[in-house]
Amino acid sequence: MAHPKLQLAAALVGSGLAGVLVALQSRINGGLSQEMGNGFLAAAISFGGGLVVICLALALSRRGRAGLRRMRDEVAAGRLPRWALFGGAGGAFLVLSQGLIAPVTGVALFTVGIVAGQVSGGLVMDRLGLGPGGRILATPTRLIGAALAIVAVVVTVVGSFDPGLVLLVLVPVAVGVGVSAQSMVNGLVRSAAQSAMTATFMNFVVGTVLLLAAATVSVIVGGWPTQWPSEFWLYCGGFIGVIFIAVAAILVRRAGVLLLSMSNVAGQLVAAIAFEVGFPLADGLTPALVAGTAVALIAVITAALPSKPLGQG
Rank of each mutant, 00 (worst) to 15 (best):
V185M: 01
I298Q: 08
V151F: 07
G131A: 04
L58D: 07
Q25L: 11
C55R: 07
E35P: 02
S160A: 15
N186Y: 01
G99F: 05
S97E: 10
N29A: 06
S261T: 07
V247Y: 02
A214M: 15
V115E: 05
G129C: 12
P229D: 14
S191E: 15
V52S: 10
Y235E: 04
G48P: 04
T105H: 11
L305N: 07
L56K: 09
M1H: 09
P309D: 01
L168E: 08
V157G: 00
L21E: 01
A89M: 14
W83F: 15
G14Q: 00
S15G: 03
A11C: 01
L260V: 08
E35G: 08
F201Q: 03
R79V: 12
I144Y: 07
V13A: 12
L123W: 06
A102H: 04
Q194C: 11
V53P: 03
Q7C: 07
A43Q: 05
A193R: 11
A304S: 14
A272C: 08
R253Q: 13
N186S: 12
T286D: 09
N29K: 04
G145V: 00
A291G: 14
L109Q: 08
L143I: 14
P81K: 14
F279H: 11
V52E: 06
A116S: 13
V155F: 04
A294Y: 10
V112Q: 02
G256L: 03
A77R: 15
L212H: 03
S191C: 09
Q98T: 06
I298M: 12
V169E: 09
V155Y: 03
A255L: 07
V252S: 00
P309C: 01
S180N: 00
V169D: 13
P287L: 08
P229F: 09
S230E: 14
Q227R: 14
V75S: 13
G238M: 02
E35L: 10
A282Q: 10
V177G: 02
S15V: 02
G133Y: 05
Q7S: 11
V217H: 13
G178I: 05
P229T: 15
L148G: 01
Q25V: 05
G113K: 06
V154A: 01
V295D: 08
A299G: 15
V155G: 03
S15C: 02
V206K: 01
A248G: 13
E35S: 13
G131H: 03
G90R: 00
I250R: 13
T139Y: 03
A10T: 07
V151R: 01
R65E: 09
A296Y: 09
R253A: 11
